[in-house]
């Protein structure tokens, strides 16, 4: 089990199946082409996408169905599915990147406009852009769960 330096947990061991290839990186972080998907803990819906190349580069992510009141299916171009060799969106796990303001955690938001697609079959990932204008870049999570 290889060791990985992480932002949230220090040095931990990760299983090979936790490693996701991002051929094009994530927007703004295009050099980071490998991330590990790490659970934050058993009692929380949050996970971390941790760059395997830099311990400081990590994103908190959540599956939108765990907090969205209404169903959310991103409208994404076929080219993005092709890039990760997925036949349809059903092959993918959808993750939203979470932003937590430093002194205002209750104002945390999830990005539904730029969903992360993970192909379950081959562990390839891609950040896409949803063409539905109701899918906003900052969706307040606590408002969705009635907080």
């Amino acid at each position: 089990m290889p060791e990985l330096a992480t932002k949230a947990f220090g040095n931990i061991s990760v299983e090979p199946e936790q490693i996701i290839d991002f051929p094009e990186g994530i927007f703004g972080f295009n050099d980071h082409v490998k991330f590990a998907l790490i659970e934050e803990g058993e009692d929380t819906p949050f996970k971390w996408l941790q760059s395997t190349m830099d311990r400081e580069i990590a994103f908190i992510v959540i599956q939108p169905e765990l907090f969205m009141k209404n169903s959310y299916v991103p409208e994404i171009p076929k080219s993005d599915l092709k890039l990760i060799s997925a036949e349809s969106i059903d092959d993918c796990i959808i993750l939203s990147i979470v932003t937590i303001p430093e002194n205002n955690p209750e104002k945390m938001t999830a990005n539904l406009q730029g969903p992360i697609l993970l192909n379950k079959k081959n562990k390839k990932g891609r950040q896409s852009i949803s063409n539905n204008e109701n899918h906003l870049v900052r969706v307040p999570i606590l408002e969705q769960i009635g907080g």
Partner: peptide
């Protein structure tokens, strides 16, 4: 937004 998210 990704850059801000990475600062969380």
């Amino acid at each position: 937004q990704n850059i801000k998210a990475a600062e969380s």
